[in-house]
């Protein structure tokens, strides 16, 4: 792996630069996404998610992280969006613009940003919705498995999900997705709106799910510090492009990443976010 490119210059999207030696489970090749056929949101995004790893996709608001996930899961079609160019190869099959139900059946499930649990269903009913595509009889065991990872959900299983706390709702959103038995879990901002303690708890569980069940995870986050602590490899997006990639160690030591995403100075001390913002703005417009 060569020295990471500097921020602001998009990398040539060559999927050959696969992280590590693990075989890729998902390869996104230079995709362009448009909404309503006119608004270009992703301008050639390429990334590789190796089997069994956690890959973090970082970036600020509006960078296109969620759109990337929706392009993979097929949920773009519900928002009048579509992949105009490029391909999304999952287990040897191009799933760009596929029907969301068929993507779920293939083993990819997205946990939407903002939890989006079914408020008027009980916790257990929420979990059952995750089993609609399944035809096997092992639903009971998988529910036990979810309760094993999230014991708090077990306590609340007969309650309406809308009355659960924010942390419990995030756990439910992840648990509900696990009921699908995914090969690849797409997590969109699991830390959103949660207290730091809960963020830690959730990320610890995410890491356990990856280690114990071998579930591959593509994690979108704004909380770069938390994400880089669990991930194996990371990509950074800006304005619809991947601008930086590397192993977690490489990213953590990159001066720009430190400055923008981790809020650290060159020497490693904490820096006020106010300064970072001003510096960012200057750097982007110059």
């Amino acid at each position: 792996m060569t020295q990471p490119a500097t921020l602001g210059t998009p990398l040539a999207g060559s999927p050959a630069a696969a992280p590590g030696a693990a075989e890729p489970l998902l390869t996104v090749n230079n995709i362009e996404v448009v909404y309503h056929d006119v608004i270009l949101v992703l301008k050639g995004v390429s990334l590789v998610v190796p089997k069994g790893q956690i890959v973090a996709l970082l970036g600020t608001n509006g960078a296109g992280k969620s759109t990337t996930l929706k392009a993979i899961s097929g949920l773009l079609s519900a928002e009048e969006g579509r992949v105009r160019q490029g391909s999304i190869i999952y287990q040897g099959r191009d799933i760009a613009n596929a029907d969301p139900a068929s993507v779920v059946q293939a083993g990819i499930v997205q946990v939407l940003e903002g939890r989006r649990i079914f408020k008027h269903l009980t916790v257990e009913e929420n979990l059952r919705v995750g089993t609609v595509t399944r035809r096997d009889g092992q639903i009971r065991q998988d529910m036990e498995m979810v309760y094993h990872y999230f014991p708090r959900l077990y306590e609340r299983r007969h309650q309406l999900a809308g009355y659960c706390s924010g942390g419990e709702q995030q756990m439910l959103a992840i648990g509900r997705a696990l009921m699908v038995r995914p090969q690849l879990l797409l997590l969109d901002e699991p830390s959103l709106g949660l207290a730091p303690m809960l963020v830690q708890e959730i990320f610890a569980i995410v890491r356990r799910i990856n280690a114990e069940r071998g579930t591959t995870i593509l994690l979108v986050e704004q909380n770069a510090r938390a994400a880089l602590n669990v991930a194996h490899y990371g990509y950074i997006m800006e304005n619809g492009r991947i601008v930086q990639e590397g192993s977690v160690a490489q990213l953590k030591n990159n001066p720009d990443v430190k400055e923008f995403y981790l809020g650290l100075t060159e020497s490693g001390t904490r820096k006020s976010y106010r300064d970072v913002k001003a510096y960012r703005r200057r750097k982007r417009y110059m």
Binding site: F118, L121, V132, T133
Partner: peptide, 19 residues
Amino acid sequence: VAMRAVADDQQAALSLGVS
């Protein structure tokens, strides 16, 4: 249950493979 889920949040239901 899936029908009630669709009534509650269509996109979330879609994300779990509900047709």
